[in-house]
């Protein structure tokens, strides 16, 4: 799998490249700003992009804007965004449209080599990987009414689900059987008034959208 990395800090860029190589990815290009990222994607047609949200020249959200451009021009290209902090608006923007193969992780996560590579694999395979802090932050805005009705266990399941984990991965994390995980998910969906869906991405995104939409009061 061929990867382009966009990150303005040289140290971190090289670290990321080494990390991706260890994970079995072929790093075909590393760039330091959004402009170069767009050019590199046009030229090399990578299978995955890993990009920092904040890059030169303005050090605000160039990386994210480049990612949004790529979503339009290359809808099937999986993108993993790295950020210094969680900004809900970014998550929403990334997830609108056709949300496949999308990830949003805090930069610190790269230190957990195995978990990070797992997340990269998920995104590369068309899945999602949202940072646990993204999820808890979205839940903050959604407190009150419906979410209050969830049991602590259901909240845990919802958070893990939103991070992009499969039922069996959630089961393994919480030491629960697949059957009881499905039970929790069904009861949760009923409480949240969501139709039951089987497709992994859709259910995450349905929940995130739901959280987001009613969070803006």
């Amino acid at each position: 799998m061929r990867v382009v990395i966009a990150e303005d800090s040289v140290l971190l860029r090289e670290g990321l490249a080494r990390l991706m190589e260890v994970g079995g990815f072929a790093v075909i290009d590393t760039v330091g700003d959004a402009e170069q990222l767009l050019r590199s994607v046009e030229r090399d047609c990578p299978d995955l992009v890993v990009a920092d949200v904040r890059m030169p020249p303005d050090q605000s959200d160039e990386g994210l804007r480049a990612a949004l451009v790529l979503r339009r021009t290359h809808p099937d290209l999986p993108i993993l965004m790295l950020s210094q902090y969680v900004e809900e608006r970014y998550v929403t923007e990334l997830l609108t449209g056709r949300p496949r193969g999308i990830g949003y992780l805090l930069k610190d996560r790269v230190a957990d080599v195995r978990e990070f590579l797992d997340a990269v694999e998920r995104v590369a395979g068309g899945g999602t990987a949202l940072d646990p802090e993204v999820v808890s932050q979205l839940l903050v805005r959604r407190q009150g009414d419906e979410l209050d009705r969830l049991t602590p266990r259901e909240r845990e399941v919802l958070a893990l689900m939103a991070e992009g984990h499969s039922n069996s991965a959630i089961g393994a994390t919480l030491f629960l059987s697949d059957g009881s995980i499905s039970k929790h998910i069904n009861s949760m969906f009923t409480k949240l008034g969501l139709p039951r869906r089987d497709i992994h991405n859709r259910r995450v995104l349905a929940i995130l959208k739901y959280l987001r939409a009613s969070g803006e009061d």
Partner: peptide, 12 residues
């Protein structure tokens, strides 16, 4: 940045 890179390398 330095410590992140360090942690990545130790992880690798």
């Amino acid at each position: 940045q330095r410590i992140t890179a360090l942690a990545v390398d130790l992880g690798i």
